[in-house]
Nucleic acid binder design. Sequence first.
DNA 1: TCATAAATGTGTACAGTGTACACAATATTA
DNA 2: TAATATTGTGTACACTGTACACATTTATGA
Lengths: 214, 214
Amino acid sequence: MTGEIPKTLKRETYRHGDLYRTLLDAAVELARKGGKDAIVLREVTRQAGVAPNAAYRHFADLKSLLRAASMAAQAELATYMEKELAKITPSGDKVEDARAQLRAVGTGYLHFAQAEPGLFRLAFSEHADLSNATDPASTGSGGLTPFQILSVALDALMEAGQLPKERREAAEFFAWSAVHGLAMLQIDGPLRGLEAAQAEAIGQRLIDMVERGL
Amino acid sequence: MTGEIPKTLKRETYRHGDLYRTLLDAAVELARKGGKDAIVLREVTRQAGVAPNAAYRHFADLKSLLRAASMAAQAELATYMEKELAKITPSGDKVEDARAQLRAVGTGYLHFAQAEPGLFRLAFSEHADLSNATDPASTGSGGLTPFQILSVALDALMEAGQLPKERREAAEFFAWSAVHGLAMLQIDGPLRGLEAAQAEAIGQRLIDMVERGL
DNA sequence: TCATAAATGTGTACAGTGTACACAATATTA
DNA sequence: TAATATTGTGTACACTGTACACATTTATGA
């Protein structure tokens, strides 16, 4: 058997083989360039070399496809966080390491927004399903969602004595809020088009605020 | 002369009279119910009782209309902030008053997001023009944009000695980031559908973090 | 005052969209 | 092997944004 799964080329088999994956990938690539609104069902099927209605065998409607693509974008966000976490060389100092861990999570978030604005917008677009923060469809290679990665970092911070126990509850939301808001400002807002170095500096100052305020 | 400006009724005059305003208002009302994507040009003109193409005499294209509607939404946000500011009864204590002022700004922001999620999404949608934070089209009755209102509050905080001078620069962005992110979480994210009282409590805790961290 | 020009509306047309419905080809199962 | 489920195709429809030609009203300048 050939085992070849055709992507965008014309296929000679009636069945596609892995259409779900192919459609999803095409949707993500479109969003990478143009955000949520760049995902248009007919274009996705066109790239898969398939009739428009074939998509309906795998997704209930366009909104479903958007949700799936959004999950994938969140997964990519998770890998950005993991990448930043991997840079840390443990110092042995529990406090310092916990701080570095939280900073890495925030920095990964901001880098993702900067490097992949289209995916970032998709991940947090109106129709995205953010309600379930533990869906395996949006985990990185470590098996955790962005939210879970943040939770782990906050646990470490608390254990290191840098986050009062009575403030641990719901701390995810506060930390997340801050970096998310800044990311929006840097992508679409008044901070758009900043030099990379300046954007980085502002990002680090924001994380300073979170560290002090949490 | 009658002086009547027809809104959605059939008009017997060839000219409409105030079509720009009517189209803009209709767009805002659509977004109030369904967010940015609910603004559809043909529906807007339908409500104005006018042919679709008439819109092109007043807006270059749909994107232009979206931008204008977004400005209007930002203006409504400003009035929410002003409403909250008006609730403050000055205590005479400079420090306390400055703090209350900043809290009012943040609280107004969060209340707006909660009360008008459609407008909130419109105001900060991809095609919104947030680059100019001083456009008079997005001011409240006080003549200031949301961003400017926040700036004033931060100035007061600094003058009251509650914000180190070396941290005053760009402080708008940090404060704004935090409340904006939380608003998103409460509208579309995992904090969606929270009881009003709980949402309020979380909001106040977030503002606590900002106060400590700024 | 009156021809002319500018502004603002309408009508028709077109390419593109999401998706419903009937049908065709291939896999799976009894 | 016959019946059935799965997955892809073809046609059709209502709807969208907008280009282009034209009609009607208002403003302008001799």
